[in-house]
Design a protein around this nucleic acid. Structure first.
Lengths: 340, 340
DNA sequence: TTACAATACGAAAACGTTTTCGTAAAAGAG
DNA sequence: CTCTTTTACGAAAACGTTTTCGTATTGTAA
């Protein structure tokens, strides 16, 4: 195995060249008051000449702190998460922090391993969007027990008191359904996500609230639970089409599900939005390009990441002994296109 | 600032509890042969009970190695890069490595800072896709001078000898055009990119090669240079439609250009693929979802990341004193859909 | 019994950095 | 000139881990 050590200049090397002690070099480079100007200049000059870079591993061990924050997301390549990562990186970079990026792959076991890994690397804090299959949050409780700042975004858990950044799912869902009602649709169905996940629950609540507000009775047949993928849309759609009367509008828990529905509509020659209106959630880049362009609820992914990072950094800096967990709800935006 | 140290169990803590020396605990936990079974069991038990996690910062300092690889990309949220990151993470995770993700934001200065940062963190190796505005590659030369393994992907530099992963643009273009020829199209036009860029040149060469191989004479009227955006597709399409005889097929330098063409086709009621076949390049997630789904040349973004990571890990493990830089050209894959 | 090998553990040093404390030498005050 | 202060540096310990070497105890063979 390659040993990087051989190739790096250390403070000791500089000290040796200068004929002084390592501590003097440290102090010179860090501009301590008890080092002469002459020594400081010599140290700086030689450090530059020798290409000295501080060994942050050693610094971290010494100080007991790192300038690294860990991030765990279910997927990297999905637009929502990569945009959020982008926001996190941006804020972290500006504050002098680096980010460890881990993907849980929607797998509970892997999420646990990732968490342990980050703790092992002594990250200053962790930002998480939990996996679809995570029911037990013991590993996050453990993070908090170790006094490591922890912030959740988007996929949060109710079972844990921590800083969270979410989107106002309920209001977003509500506005989408309200828009359907205003457009004259009467029999509005909902393809919901897994019932133990917060975003599913919130979006369902928004759906129900909008119906209630308009005086439309809730019809249990029109509520179908499923997952977050295209096939879940296909599957849900098939079940709904068997109902009589058929729904005339469909609010989907997210865009892929809506995409699955549209796919199936095309296959079965169901006209959108005349026979069936469809609304998604997220505003993935795809959905504005398809035909017909999908009406959907836009989530500020980049901003969510940025806000989560800011919360985490504040927690890191102010300590988290006395902090009171806070939930920041970001506003969604209804993008009205051609499927409604 | 928060001091994480207070909250963590160390080997010393375990040793104290057990009334033995730290070295014994290390050896017990690492299953050294010169420790009794009884001691090993006690150590393992207590470690688990106390929630011991190895401090990898200390391990790195001790061994002079980290299990971290650094990645620098121009953007995180673009699909190509996030898919590549996904591939990198997947391979790294399986091999026990974590990834530092840095975004250069297409900014040279920031790329330099990112590089320094990674070196400072003693990463085991670095994977880079360089920024659009990077002309000087001194910072990467510096990485090599420090004997840190370095792999480029997609956006590579000719001025530096290193492992690289790119896509075979020429072969990809050629296969796309060959497919058009096999499908019976005779008058195949090409909307090319800027003539000074490598990918434009390569794709054009592939186009020309496929025509030549099929014995179809090259028609200069059927070659139109433009940019990489949707409007370039619209513009090129308009020019082509004035020609007599009109082309019956169109190979576009990338997907957005093809999207522009399809848009204009729809507007003018040109039937695709009956009157005009269209092929793109990249396989952006959008293009499989539109109607009709676009035939295009897929670039294996995820695989590029994965291959880059594998190359890097090999370099890390086998040392890079004697290695000969290699350029891996990945095959593209023709995604035949409904526009041809 | 004597000699020797095996077993099981501990002490200490090292990785690179920082920080505290100590102390020579120089400078200043009286 | 003496005493005190300031200046400028060094020594040493520490962060948590690993590894090498040394050694006391036990077991085995002749």
């Amino acid at each position: 195995m390659l040993n990087a050590r051989t190739a790096h200049t250390t403070i000791k090397d500089i000290a040796k060249q200068l004929g002084v002690a390592p501590s003097t070099v440290t102090k010179a480079l860090k501009d301590y008051p008890d080092v002469s100007e002459g020594m400081k200049e010599k140290a700086r000059g030689l450090a530059k000449k020798m290409g000295y870079l501080p060994n942050s591993v050693a610094q971290s061990l010494q100080s007991g702190e790192t300038t690294t924050i860990g991030v765990i997301v279910p997927e990297i390549k999905h637009h929502f998460f990569s945009a959020a990562l982008d926001g996190i990186e941006e804020v972290a970079f500006k504050e002098g922090y680096s980010i460890f990026v881990c993907k849980s792959n929607e797998d509970y076991e892997r999420e646990v391993i990732n968490t342990r890994n980050l703790l092992s690397h002594f990250v200053a804090g962790i930002i998480v969007s939990i996996s679809q299959h995570t029911k037990d949050v013991g590993h996050f409780i453990d993070v908090q027990a170790r006094k490591i700042p922890l912030v959740f975004f988007d996929r949060v858990s109710d079972e844990i008191a921590a800083n969270k950044v979410v989107v106002d799912d309920r209001a977003g869902a509500s506005s989408a359904v309200a828009h359907l009602i205003e457009s004259g649709y009467k029999r509005i169905a909902h393809l919901a996500g897994p019932d133990y996940l917060n975003i599913s629950k919130e979006r369902l609540k928004g759906y129900a609230a909008a119906l209630k507000k308009a005086g439309i009775p809730f019809n249990a047949d029109y509520l179908i639970y499923g997952g977050f993928d295209e096939e879940d849309g296909v599957h849900g759609f098939k079940r709904l089409m068997k109902l009589r009367p058929r729904p005339d509008a469909l609010f989907c828990v997210n865009d892929p599900v809506a995409l699955g529905v549209l796919l199936e509509c095309k296959k079965r020659k169901v006209r959108v939005p005349e026979e069936l209106a469809v609304v998604g959630f997220s505003d993935n880049p795809v959905v504005s390009q398809i035909d017909p362009p999908l009406t959907t609820v836009a989530q500020p992914a980049y901003e969510m990441g940025a806000v989560a990072a800011k919360m985490l950094l504040q927690q890191i800096r102010h300590g988290n002994g006395d902090f009171v967990p806070e939930v920041i709800k970001l506003k969604t935006k209804l993008m009205i296109r051609k499927t409604t």
